[in-house]
Design a protein around this nucleic acid. Sequence first.
RNA 1: AGACCCAUGGUGUAAUUGGUAACACAGCAGAUUUUGGUUCUGUCAUUCUAGGUUCGAGUCCUAGUGGGUCUACCA
Length: 560
Amino acid sequence: MSTETKGKESLNFIEQIIEEDIASGKHNGTVLTRFPPEPNGYLHIGHAKAIVVNFGIAQRYGGKTNLRFDDTNPVTEDTEYVESIKRDIRWLGFDWEDREFFASDYFDQLYEFGADLIKKGLAYVDDSSAEQIAEMKGTPVAPGKESPYRSRTVEENLSLFEGMKNGEFEEGSRVLRAKGDMSSPNMHMRDPIMYRIKYAHHHRTGDKWCIYPMYDFAHGQSDSIEGITHSLCSLEFRHHRPLYDWFIEKLDIFPSRQIEFARMNVSYMITSKRKLLKLVKENYVSGWDDPRMPTIAGMRRRGFPPAAIRTFCERAGVAKRDNLIEIELLEFCVREELNRTCSRVMGVLDPLKVIITNYPEGQEEWLEAINNPEDESMGSRQIPFSGELYIEKEDFMENPPKKFFRLAPGANVRLKNAYIITCDEVIKDENGEITALHCRYYPDSKSGEDTSTVPAKGTLHWVSVPHAGTAEVRRYDRLFADPEPDGHEDRDFLEFFNPGSLEVLPKAYLEPGLKDARAGEQFQFMRKGYFCVDTDSTPGNPVFNQTISLKDSWAKAQKK
RNA sequence: AGACCCAUGGUGUAAUUGGUAACACAGCAGAUUUUGGUUCUGUCAUUCUAGGUUCGAGUCCUAGUGGGUCUACCA
C-alpha cells in the first residue's frame, strides 16, 4: 500500500484539527481512532469510507486504529457478522493488530459508571412506560415534562438499578435515565435513557446481563476507556455530541473528542441496511455478495480491487456537506488500478466465425502477445492462430457507417498480434442471418514484421476456433436506473431496479491459456473490459464476471 | 414551528486562514496509438442572494433563501 503523505497542501478539516492538537501537545501528539461497526449486517461502500477515513487519518499521523464492535443490542446482533466484518476490513487492506474490542467487554465498567452517576445525583430509575417517556419528552418546539420518578433518592435509585441488573423487573418496566434538561432544545439532552432491561441472549456475554446500555451511554464511554483521541463519526451524531461530552465530564474520564463528517453517498447505489436486505430477501440479487451489490463482499466478488476502493474514498474527500459522489469516479479508480495490473487476453463474447480462405488447411502457428503494454515486466505469451477464427459479432457490419473502421465487405482490419485480413464474402443461412465470413490474410503482414503495406485502420481481437476454451460470462450494469434510487419521497427505490443489471452469456470463447485461471484472477479482455474468475467456477467450467467495461468512445459516439 | 449543521463549475474536494478561484472525475474538441483502451493537449465558475466591514472578501459581520439533521427502551 502506498503511504500517502499528505504534505502541506490541502488538509481536510479533521486533519486540521488533528494538526492543531499535535501542535498544542494534546495527548502528547498521540492519535488513536476507531472503527465501530455494529455486528448486525454486512459492510458496504459507506463503511469503506468510514474505514478509510479512520484508519487513513491515524496512519497519516503515526497513530493507530481500534476495531470495536458496538454490540449493545443483543436482539439484533450476531457473531456471524463479526467474522464477515473482520474479513472485509482486512481485505480492504487495514490492520487493527491486537486492538480488537467489543463494547460488551466494558459492560461491568459501564454498570459502575451508571452507579457513579446515580451517586452523583445525575441519574435515576424511571418506572414510566416507553409511551409515557415519549410523551414527556416534548417536541423540538415544546419543552418536555420531568418524570414523576426523577426525584427518587440516591439510595432508592441505587437499589432499583441493582434490581434491574439482577433481573427483578420485567422487560420494559424500568429504565435508567440521566438527569439532563427536559427543556433543552436538544432532544438528546432531555433525560436520555442510559440502560434498558432486555432478557436477551448476547452473542458474547450470553445470559450474564439483562440490562444493556444505550448507544449514548456506551459509545463515548468505550471511546474514553480505550483512550480514543479523535472519535470520527457521521453528521447525524452532531446532536449527540453535547451528551457525549456531558457523560465524559460528569464521569471525569479520558476526554475523547467526537468529530462529525458527512457520510459518502454514491450515485446509483443505496446503502440502507433495510433496503439492501430487501434486495437479498426478495431475490432481486443472488445474495449479499452479488457482484451488483454495494457491499464490500459484492465489490470483492465483482473484482473491484481494494486499492481502487481506497483511492476512491480518498478522492471523494472529507467535509461536512451532503454529497453525492458520481459512480464514474469509482469506475475510474477501478479501471486505473486494473489497467496497471491486469494481463491482456483475448476473449470473444458474442462470436462470428471467420474462415481464412488462403490459410493452409490444418496449419496452426503460435504468435507472441505482450501481456501488458503498461508493464513490460509482465512479459509475453504465445497464442495460437489458425484458419478458423471467432471475432466479435459487433466488429462486422455489412453496411457500415462512415467512421466504422472494423470489418466490412471489402474492408481490411488487423487481427491483434496476428495478420491483416480482407473480408471477401459474407455467408448467410436461409433466414438471411450471417453465419460466417470468408476472408483472405496477408502472410507478410504478421505483427512485428509487417512488410505488406496493406492499410488497416482497425484492430480486432479474435480467438482460434480449434484452440478456444469456453466460459460463462456474466456482465453487470448498475443495479438501479436512477442516480438516487432512495432519494424520492413519492417513489419506492425498487421502482428503479434495473432488470438488465445482470446479463449471462453462457458460452464465450477464450484463448486457451485461460483454462487454468483460478477464482479471483483478473484479466483485461482486450477491447471489452476487465473480468475476474468467479467463485461459481468449477473445473472445466469457468465463470467470468465483468468487473467493468473498457471505455468505449465508439459506442458513445454511436448513441449520439 | 424551534435548535443545530451546511452552501465554491455537471460532480466531489481545495484555496498558504483577508491578497484576486486549484486539483480530480464527468463532458466537449484534438493529437498519439497494432486495444475506438492507455497516454497527451486544449476547453468548461458572476464562489446561493442582498447589504455591510476593508485598499482588497470564496474567506469576516447582518439579513434572507435553499438543503440537511434531531422528537427509537436502534446504532
